[in-house]
C-alpha cells in the first residue's frame, strides 16, 4: 500500500510539473545597410537628397507628367512606399492620396509639423450637404510651403532631424549638409527679397492660387485666377480679368508654366505681361530646386524692377 501511495504521489507530482515556463519572444531588428527615403514632391526630394547624401537613397516615384498633389499612386508604388524606412510628407494637406492609402505610421514624417502656426488656410472651400450627415466641407490648407525659403528651411530641418534620429551614426554629416543647405536657402531668400525690392505693393496677377507662401513672405499684392497655361480661358474668365483690372491694375501675370503664345498675346493686349515662376512640384527640366528658384527670383526682377 505504501508503494501505491508513493506511485500516486509521483503521478500527481508529474502532473503538477507539466506547467509552463514563460518564454519571451524578442523582436530583432536586422541591420539594414540601404536606407530608403520616400517623398511626396520634388522640393522634399531635393532637401532629403542634399541632407542625406550617400547615406540614404531618396525616391520620388511620381511620374514626371503628373501633378504630385493630385496623383494617386498605383498599388505597386504604394507597396514601395510601405517598404520605405522613412516617408517624408509635405504636410499642409498636400498630396491627398496619403489619406487614402495605407502607409506605416511609424515611418511617416510631416516636414511641416513644426510650422503649423505658419500654414495658410485656403479661403476657397467647397461645402456640400447631403444625406443624414449634414453639411460638410472640402477644403484645406495652402501647401506650397517651400516657396517661402524660410519655411523650406524648416522643412529641411525636420528632414535632418528625422534622418538623424533614424541614423544617429551619420547625424554629424546630416548636420553639416543641412547647414550648407540652410545657407543656400537663406541666400535664396535674400535674392527674392532683393528682386522684389521695395515694390512689393505693386499689383500682380497669379494664374493659379499656388503662391500663397511666396506672397505672404514678400508681402506681394497678388490676385489669383484659375487659369491653365495650356488652355485658353473662357470669355467669362477674360471678362473677370478685365473686371479685376479696374481695381487691381496689374501689369504682370505670374504663371506656373509658359502660357500658350495666344494667351500671352491676348494678355499683353490687355496690358498684362506674362512671366513664369516655377513652383517646382516636379523636378525642373534643367538644374535643381535651388537653380530653379534662383531663376524664379530673376523672373521676379522683371515684375518688380522695371
Amino acid at each position: 500500500m505504501k508503494r501505491l501511495t508513493h506511485s500516486l504521489f509521483i503521478a500527481l507530482f508529474i502532473a503538477a510539473m507539466v506547467t509552463f515556463t514563460a518564454c519571451e519572444r524578442r523582436q530583432s531588428h536586422a541591420a539594414d545597410t540601404g536606407f530608403s527615403v520616400y517623398v511626396v514632391n520634388y522640393p522634399l526630394y531635393y532637401f532629403a537628397t542634399r541632407i542625406g547624401g550617400d547615406q540614404v537613397s531618396v525616391f520620388f516615384p511620381a511620374p514626371g507628367e503628373v501633378d504630385p498633389a493630385e496623383w494617386i499612386p498605383e498599388d505597386r508604388i504604394i507597396q514601395r512606399y510601405q517598404a520605405a524606412d522613412l516617408i517624408i510628407l509635405n504636410g499642409a494637406d498636400y498630396a491627398g492620396w496619403i489619406k487614402l492609402v495605407t502607409l506605416p505610421e511609424s515611418a511617416l514624417v510631416d516636414a511641416s509639423a513644426n510650422i503649423q502656426d505658419r500654414l495658410i488656410e485656403e479661403n476657397e472651400l467647397i461645402h456640400h450637404s447631403h444625406g443624414p450627415h449634414g453639411e460638410h466641407t472640402h477644403g484645406g490648407t495652402a501647401f506650397t510651403v517651400w516657396l517661402d525659403p524660410t519655411l523650406a528651411l524648416e522643412q529641411a530641418r525636420s528632414i535632418k532631424m528625422a534622418l538623424s534620429s533614424a541614423l544617429p551614426q551619420y547625424a554629424e554629416q546630416f548636420e553639416q549638409r543641412f547647414i550648407q543647405l540652410m545657407e543656400d536657402l537663406l541666400a535664396l531668400d535674400s535674392s527674392i527679397k532683393a528682386a522684389v525690392g521695395n515694390n512689393a505693393a505693386r499689383p500682380v496677377f497669379v494664374s493659379h492660387p499656388v503662391y500663397q507662401y511666396l506672397e505672404a513672405r514678400y508681402q506681394l499684392n497678388a490676385v489669383s485666377f484659375h487659369w491653365e497655361p495650356d488652355e485658353m480661358p473662357t470669355d467669362a474668365e477674360w471678362n473677370e480679368l478685365a473686371h479685376v483690372l479696374e481695381t487691381h491694375p496689374a501689369r504682370w501675370m505670374i504663371w506656373e508654366d509658359e502660357p500658350l503664345p495666344e494667351i500671352a498675346a491676348r494678355l499683353q493686349a490687355a496690358g498684362v505681361a506674362s512671366v513664369v515662376f516655377n513652383p517646382t512640384f516636379q523636378s525642373p527640366a534643367a538644374g535643381d530646386f535651388l537653380s530653379a528658384m534662383q531663376a524664379n527670383a530673376e523672373a521676379l526682377k522683371l515684375v518688380y524692377q522695371d
Binding site: H127, H130, G131, P132
Partner: peptide, 14 residues
Amino acid sequence: IRNGTYVGSPAVRE
C-alpha cells in the same frame, strides 16, 4: 447651392 454650400439630395450615390 446655399451660401456656397452644395446641398445634395439623399439620393447622392455613395
